[in-house]
Structure formats: structure tokens, C-alpha cells
Design a protein around this nucleic acid. Structure first.
Length: 116
DNA sequence: TCACTGACCGTGG
DNA sequence: ACCACGGCCAGTG
């Protein structure tokens, strides 16, 4: 009979990675969140380090993930070096009305968004 | 095959 | 207040 394609010819990313991408895309414009918050929101044994690792290959995810809205708990743009240009992350955030000084978000908690 | 690293965070001394 | 270490997953040499 018609053998259902049990196999997965489409190499979808691991579930937890996919969840991270979805969560990041849900971040409202002008808001930011932290790696730890995403890891905690998804739960599981996910850790903030894994979120960062997922972000590393986020540029291959489609649609593209607004990784510039994800910073560490210090509000520092730790991942800016991984963007096309080292200043792109800051420019994107500033374009959304977020003030940045010394690679750090000003009024971080004001722009902080909690995954829900 | 084993060991180390990575866009981190929390806790302990 | 500062420094050191563990933890979780996947990829690379």
C-alpha cells in the first residue's frame, strides 16, 4: 500500500532549536530579551549557552531570526561580532528606538521583553 | 573516539 | 566585590 513517508527527507532543525527561533521571532519590535530568558521560557534542559549556539546558525533559519534583539543578561551586545558587520547589531537596535552606549543597552530593563 | 569550544547564567568561596 | 566552576547540546579537529 502507500507507504507513508515516515522518513524525514526534510532535515528540520531539532525541536528545541526551532522553538528558540520561533520565540525570538515573537520578540516585539523595540524590545529585547536575554539568552537565559529564552532558555527558561522553553524549559527543558536548555541552557543559555545552547541558545547562543542556536543563534550562531540562526542566520541559516528561515525566515531570518532577529538575533539582534537577543542580548546577554547584562544587556551587552555580546553577539555583535557574529553579525555581517560588528556595528550592524547596534544599528538595528538603535533603528528600533533602543539607545546603546558602549555596546550596552541603556535602560535595558525598560526595553526588556519577557517571553510568554 | 575523545576532548574542547561556544552569541551564557547561576552559585560558591 | 571578584574569581572559578559546573551545566546543558551539537559540531569540529
Amino acid at each position: 500500500m502507500n507507504t507513508p513517508i515516515k522518513k524525514k527527507p526534510v532535515p528540520r532543525e531539532d525541536d528545541w532549536i526551532e522553538k528558540i527561533y520561533v520565540m525570538v521571532r515573537r520578540i516585539p519590535k523595540g524590545k529585547v530579551t536575554t539568552y537565559g530568558a529564552l532558555a527558561d521560557a522553553i524549559g527543558s534542559r536548555l541552557t543559555s549557552r545552547m541558545v547562543g549556539w542556536a543563534m550562531n546558525k540562526a542566520h541559516t533559519a528561515k525566515p531570518k531570526v532577529p538575533a539582534h534583539r537577543v542580548v546577554n543578561r547584562n544587556g551587552m551586545l555580546t553577539g555583535k561580532h557574529h553579525f555581517a558587520t560588528p556595528t550592524l547589531m547596534q544599528e538595528l537596535l538603535e533603528a528600533e528606538g533602543i539607545r546603546i552606549e558602549d555596546d550596552k543597552i541603556k535602560d535595558f530593563k525598560t526595553h526588556y521583553w519577557t517571553p510568554s
